[in-house]
């Protein structure tokens, strides 16, 4: 039972990070119908920029409080990622908005690899240590289950951000414009909405969330690396599809479900398959789910858009 609770907690932590990244995918997809393959790389850039800031600051002013360092790291990482996200849209995708379907997709793959390579040139190939700015000392709320302040922090921040985004999309003027553009950007334009501006704003918000996810990711695993964004990116995309792409609450649910599935999968698959499969197959759960969802329920768990629309 303790193991079960512990696995649930593990799943919630990784799941909430997936969910944050998935929001970026789902927002862009909702509005443009494009899978922004490069979104995962923004997670990586966020983590590495934050790391760079923290290292520079703690070098210049030793003894700075970790919380200030963390805030400073985020304060630099988020605008940088927003700028990168905007540039990707402006240079890479905007001209291809009416191109045949394969073109933006191939561009997106290209952008993803380009960002990885550039990161490799800037930060090198080595794994960097991301300082533990929030305590990881285990606490024991009940026998056999441990949780660290960092894990609680991760979940809280992720949920707060998701809540904030929901408010933004559902209550604000920009949010209404985004929903209108997602519906039909030509008609939205006729209603006096600057569709290009709204699309750019979508990319910028998604990129900001990715940067935050990157900082959370790196803090949790204490590691940052030029290729760290690809796998979480792919999994977050799976999460977005799982929840029903284009659907914001869906992305959150999808992220959490995927986190839990991976955690339980790694923990219990050996018993479930009588020893035939084991934790070496942890990474294929995401793909299996993706395939199954697309085949049997293309509109995802919470539904909305139909995958076939692509």
């Amino acid at each position: 039972m303790e193991t079960f609770l512990q696995q649930t907690l593990n799943g919630l932590v990784s799941g909430s990070i997936y969910a944050l990244v998935a929001l970026g995918y789902t927002m862009v997809y909702g509005i443009l119908g494009l899978i922004n393959f490069a979104h995962g790389e923004l997670v990586m850039i966020g983590a590495l920029v934050a790391l760079q800031t923290v290292t520079a600051l703690s070098g210049a002013f030793p003894g700075l409080h970790p919380v200030i360092l963390l805030i400073a790291g985020v304060a630099v990482a988020v605008p940088v990622c927003m700028a990168v996200g905007y540039l990707i849209e402006r240079i890479g995708y905007r001209r291809l908005r009416n191109a045949p379907r394969l073109a933006p997709l191939i561009t997106a793959i290209g952008v993803s690899f380009l960002l990885q390579t550039l990161a490799m040139i800037i930060w090198g190939r080595e794994f960097h240590v991301f300082p533990q700015l929030v305590s990881t000392t285990p606490m024991q709320p009940m026998d056999g289950v441990v949780v660290s302040p960092l894990q609680i922090f991760t979940i809280v921040v992720a949920f707060a951000l998701m809540g904030g985004l929901m408010l933004l999309v559902n209550k604000s003027r920009l949010g209404r414009a985004m929903r209108a553009t997602a519906e039909n950007h030509r008609v939205a334009g006729l209603m006096g909405i600057n569709a290009n501006g709204v699309i750019a704003a979508t990319f910028i918000i998604g990129s900001g969330l990715a940067a935050l996810a990157g900082v959370l990711f790196a803090s949790n695993y204490a590691i940052a690396h030029y290729a760290m964004g690809f796998t979480p990116g792919l999994k977050a995309f799976t999460a977005a599809v799982l929840g029903g792409i284009g659907n914001l609450p869906g992305a959150m649910v999808g992220g959490l479900v995927l986190g839990l599935v991976e955690s339980f999968g790694a923990g219990y698959i050996e018993h479930l398959t009588f020893g035939f499969l084991n934790s070496s197959y942890q990474d294929i759960f995401a793909f299996m789910i993706l395939g199954a969802v697309l085949i049997f329920r293309p509109s995802g768990l919470l539904g909305e858009r139909v995958a076939d629309r692509a």
Binding site: T3, N10, S14, N220, Y221, M228, T231, S279, S280, Q282
Partner: peptide
Amino acid sequence: GREFTNDKATDFMAILTKIKA
């Protein structure tokens, strides 16, 4: 117990939890 991961992984919480048990 015999557990597995891969050379790009960062999250070992699930398999470690299983091992801890």
